[in-house]
Design a protein around this nucleic acid. Structure first.
Lengths: 122, 122
DNA sequence: ATAACTAGTATACTTTTGTATAGTAACAAT
DNA sequence: ATTGTTACTATACAAAAGTATACTAGTTAT
């Protein structure tokens, strides 16, 4: 049984441990906002350069792309690597944690598809 | 293999179908913001009345609680039922879709815990 | 010298999200 | 008539998130 389900068993409602709350809010922060998922999805697709991302993600401004990439880097979701060529090549890649997000994306996709089905059927 | 992983196979990168994007953004909308997860978690715990929720969720104002409950109701995550007693009893419950969110919360929890471990270890 | 390429930054603004504080409505009990 | 109960709403404001538009810096090619 899942950790959460166990925690919620009727006859033994426990306080939600703080580390669970931290883990959940971490996760929410990583995927929240207008551009995080498009960026992560683009990186999963193999679009790794600033310009690739800008072209791949419709209507994102360089300011937002730069801001979000920095935040993802600070949170160890994305790694930034500079290749000293000309013109300079800068490559953004997903860290292991970043790649592991695909499991979460699957869960989101599954819930979203099931929910749409539920809502339409009723 | 997961739908997403399959879609991202290197030699056959497909366009992300629009219904996938819709499903993902639906899901994100349902869990985004400061109060959605606390409210959903409280409802899973069996706190079903406005006042219960207000007491259970630290520092939420009635305005926000009301606003969020309405939005969750519109999106078929929460059902509102009025019992004609005195004083009036109004009960908020999770719909099937709402209850199914627990699987997603588990995935979020797992990723969050694993990520913290990764970051600390490195 | 000018243009073009990559990878951004700067400034000002609008929109969305959330907060603070007070008040309402229906009814019952004292 | 006042107080208490539940379940909210109204108004004004502050903070966070996102947008628009223009500009910079280093390098190479013409």
């Amino acid at each position: 049984m899942s950790e959460l389900r166990e925690m919620l068993e009727k006859d033994k409602i426990k306080q939600c441990p703080k580390r669970y709350i931290l883990a959940l809010t971490d996760t929410l922060n990583v995927i929240s906002g207008k551009w995080k998922l498009p960026i992560i999805a683009s990186l999963l697709h193999g679009k790794n350069r600033f310009k690739d991302l800008q072209e791949n993600i419709e209507k994102i401004t360089p300011r937002m792309l730069s801001k979000e990439l920095k935040e993802l880097e600070v949170n160890s979701i994305v790694a930034r690597k500079v290749y000293d060529q000309t013109p300079v090549l800068i490559e953004y890649t997903l860290t292991d944690s970043g790649k592991n997000l695909i499991g979460l994306l699957d869960a989101m996709l599954d819930w979203g598809l099931a929910h749409r089905k539920e809502v339409i059927e009723s």
